[in-house]
Nucleic acid binder design. Structure first.
Lengths: 229, 229
DNA sequence: GCAAAAGTGTTAGATATACACCCATGA
DNA sequence: TCATGGGTGTATATCTAACACTTTTGC
């Protein structure tokens, strides 16, 4: 089977910069390439866009196929089109970044075991193609966006403690935050519901669990509220 | 001449959302389509990406060819890939938004006269394809970005008065600003150089001209300064 | 002399920052 | 009883927002 066009067409792929957060580390999901070029190298999950599917749809499909992750927060990041970014042919890649609740998708070994792994973003291996640059831009975007949209919650389990939330922000923003000020500010937004649930079996005072109220956020946002940390 | 691939490839275009500012109005640059589909309809300037050129390069080339504008602030906006957005074939469009100094590129009639025109964004004609949506997203981005990056200056001439700058911000943000507070804040950033030049032949007190100091901004930015209005 | 925009300070309220101790729990 | 992280309040500095009159110029 082959496809013929009057003008040359580039190939188009989608790539996913998938972040997870794990107690202490921001992590990135990588897959080991099974085919040339860059066979055996770690790379962002992704693949070619089929003609009948939308871009986001393609990104979701690839992530599902390659890593088994179904539900995630997904947003378009940037489109990379350097003519030489792929040695085979001209390939334009539409990158998406995704946030997943690591605790709820923890063990990954969907298609083939040992082909998918989480790496702390501070200790990434060499990546195929220009994926290092894509990750860099994804990180920059996450860092910027986490400040003015409540997307940090997408990285935490449904129920979380304020300490966990603060550590997440400190990790992503790479700066320490004052505990009292952080709590004051985040609780003052009235986006979190305090649950009647506390940590169990911890070697210190048990922390209360909270839940992010998406509906409340939507309500407030419509009235002109802006999340800001 | 024809091009054959083992897998189907989409076509890839670039489209430009080009903004200008003109005393009182935010304007958008449109071209009238000379060929099918949507022949005769107004559309964003743009066209197919050649295999050997980068995306931004393609966007600049198309803008130069279709509108004669050479120098402009250009940044990638978003990539649109709905499978049905073009009736001919699958076309993925990487949209860029651009800011031009309207006064310095005022009359446009480069390739063919009457094929290119500026429209106030509040009074746009019907647009081809999904270009209306692209414009909408471009506007949203401009509105957001103008607040935390000093890109507003790209829409004004080299030398401008604080009144002009304020009107620009009021137009883009669609809100009135307090004159004294605006001046205090913008001058307080020390990004503007006051020139020894004043308006001529105006029927009111002549305003002083200022210039945006790009170098100074870069200096400050490196030291952690964030522009914010 | 009037219309039109330029230019200029102060104050009150809100927000951000800095900072230190007691509490509950398991080991 | 100790180590660990949870939980809390206040004072100060900074920033924001509201507000009105005088100046200069052309007509």
């Amino acid at each position: 089977m082959s496809f013929t066009y009057k003008h040359p067409h580039p190939a188009v792929t989608v790539d996913g910069v998938v972040f997870g957060f794990d107690e202490a580390d921001l992590k990135l999901l990588l897959v080991r390439r099974k085919s040339e070029p860059c066979k055996g190298a770690w790379a962002l999950p992704g693949g070619f866009v089929a003609l009948h599917e939308g871009l986001e749809e393609a990104a979701r499909r690839e992530l599902r196929e390659e890593t088994g992750i179904g539900e995630l927060y997904l947003e378009q990041l940037y489109t990379f089109g350097d003519p030489k970014r792929d040695p085979r042919e001209r390939v334009i890649s539409v990158a998406y970044y995704a946030l997943v609740k690591l605790a709820e998708h923890s063990v990954r070994a969907d298609s083939d075991a040992a082909e998918v792994a989480w790496f702390p973003v501070a200790e990434l291996p060499e990546l195929a193609f220009d994926h290092e640059r894509i990750v860099e831009i994804g990180l920059k975007r996450l860092k910027a966006k986490v400040r003015y949209e409540p997307i940090g919650f997408e990285l935490l389990p449904e129920k979380f403690t304020l300490g966990e939330l603060q550590r997440l922000y400190e990790t992503v923003l790479e700066q320490d935050l004052d505990k009292r000020n952080f709590r004051k500010k985040i609780l003052g937004m009235e986006l979190l519901e305090a649950l009647d649930e506390y940590q169990q079996d911890v070697a210190h005072r048990a922390a209360q669990y909270y839940r992010f109220n998406h509906q409340r956020y939507e309500q407030l946002r419509k009235r002109g509220f802006n999340f800001e940390l």
